[in-house]
């Protein structure tokens, strides 16, 4: 039996990696992947806690998160494709039209 604290630790590490990925990387694909990483860190935590506390609600939420994440990836990738078509680059810092 793996103790709960290990799951929490792994989830924290994954989430931190995700945050750093979003803040530090300029490539849009990588940012999208880092966001996925953060979502899955959350999922992992939810599943672990669900087993610990025998909660069916938490498991249901995990399923919802998976579905929403899939949709989010689809929209995100579509945005990235359009962005590449317009700008010819995937660098997030190049996309800066929406300022004062």
């Amino acid at each position: 039996m793996v103790p709960l604290s290990w799951y929490v630790a792994v989830a924290c590490v994954l989430f931190t990696i995700g945050v750093i990925g979003v803040l530090a990387c300029r490539r849009t694909i990588v940012i999208l992947m880092a966001i996925e990483l953060m979502l899955n860190a959350g999922n992992l935590l939810l599943v672990a806690l669900a087993r610990e506390f025998w909660s069916a609600q938490a498991q249901a939420i995990v399923l919802f998160v998976l579905a929403v994440a899939a949709a989010e990836v689809a929209v995100g990738l579509a945005i990235i494709v359009r962005m590449f078509e317009l700008k010819g680059t995937l660098d997030i810092d190049e996309v800066n039209l929406m300022k004062w």
Binding site: V19, V22, L23, R26, I92, D93, V95, N96, L97, M98, K99, W100
Partner: peptide
Amino acid sequence: LRRLQTSHTRVYALAML
């Protein structure tokens, strides 16, 4: 206040964090 709107996505992300 509108100077805050830099259009740097990563700045926004940091602010969110």
